[in-house]
Design a protein around this nucleic acid. Structure first.
Lengths: 222, 222
DNA sequence: CCGGATCCTCGGTGATACTG
DNA sequence: CAGTATCACCGAGGATCCGG
């Protein structure tokens, strides 16, 4: 165990010993989107030193969360993928992503946007109850990053890249957060140029209902 | 921001900047059980240096997660309590506790058991669906620590201390984990002396259904 | 006793350079 | 492409001390 133990016989404390170190959960977040090579992870995690990434991957492998797999024939090299146990961290990552999104305001100077962070954000903010009877594919383009979400009656699949069968294509910037948080209405977002649409433009209302960032609770609600 | 930023415009990354440092989520876990004084936290977190606890509490206060409150009249001093935003970390703490509990085997030498860790474990493993129509109060005593859970038709309230109206009193050791994980049956747990009961002993079956640690997924389920 | 502040040591992190 | 090697530095860990 690289990290110092917390000295408690407790599942929660043990979990923190396993995935509580710096960068670890960000690596898991990226691998939840799909298997990745070492260099892919390096690029998706701006600022992570390569030796730290090496150490974290080894710790995750020792913990049975990640395993190394040889890439299929045409390519060479290895990819890192989540084990079933590691994939079960999705509920944790999504819950933490929802919690953090409430407190998100404007981007800081120089902050990056990666496909993996956007896929996670969309998956975490999805409201299954609001998606009953909805069948639609949304394509998003935010800050030069393309991703898409297929909604299928309460279920969802989010992935990186542009689909060829999108019902609605949304071109946006960081302001899309304000739309998902309900700070601006869909129609106002269109008028103000926060989003630009192609396809079935009326689906933007559906999008705004399906992907919701809950408001910050007021202190008075203590 | 005391912690180094991750450089991503992403709710999840921001959340990790806020609560991702060592000891921080353990402090939140303990405060989820109830407001605590500085010294209470120090005792509940074996090994935390007091200066680190001071720093973490200040960071949590600056982030709007924790606030200091003067203790009511008879006593003096201050307590630290969670803000509404901080209390919303309960879903994260519970999800991580459930995940970690699957991987929990035997205690390591010298590991402590605190009331807060047990309250969290019981709350996190509670199965609301299995509690339909159940009204019962369980008292637990594990490793010298007393706590109780009041189950009320799908809802639960877990707290430290011994109640005066328990339907079933369970006296156990670390082996109670094996019972909750389904590795041993309730009747075998009684026969083997893993648990000792007082009160309505038939409720142990209910207890074992209400508080479940899911099994580790097999690697083959990838 | 409570609620910290101060000092010192050591290990992990971050940055860079380099190699199979 | 996929990592090692090296090193500076900062924050964690541990002990002690201090004001109310």
């Amino acid at each position: 165990m690289s990290t110092r133990a917390y000295g408690q016989y407790c599942g929660f404390a043990r979990a923190l010993e396993t995935i509580g170190e710096r960068w670890t959960l960000l690596i898991v977040r990226d691998l939840l989107v799909g298997p990745k090579r070492f260099t892919d992870l390096l690029r998706g995690l701006p600022g992570v030193p390569s030796n730290v990434l090496t150490a974290r991957l080894k710790e995750l492998e020792d913990a049975g969360i990640v395993y190394r797999r040889a890439l299929p024939r045409p390519q060479r090299g290895v990819v890192y993928a989540l084990s079933p146990y590691g994939a079960q961290l999705e509920t944790v990552v999504d819950a933490l992503g929802r919690w953090g999104a409430k407190n998100l305001r404007d981007p800081r100077p120089g902050e990056a946007v990666t496909p993996e962070s956007l896929v996670t954000a969309l998956r975490a903010t999805f409201q299954p109850d609001a998606a009953r009877g909805v069948h639609a594919t949304f394509a998003l383009r935010v800050g030069g990053v393309a991703l898409h979400a297929r909604v299928d009656d309460g279920r969802i699949a989010v992935a990186a890249g542009a689909p060829d069968d999108a019902d609605l294509v949304i071109d946006a910037g960081p302001g899309i957060r304000a739309l998902m948080a309900g700070e601006i209405t869909p129609s106002h977002a269109v008028k103000a140029g926060v989003v630009q649409l192609r396809g079935k433009k009326k689906l933007l209302d559906v999008f705004a209902r399906l992907f919701r960032i809950d408001p910050m609770p007021s202190r008075a609600t203590a």
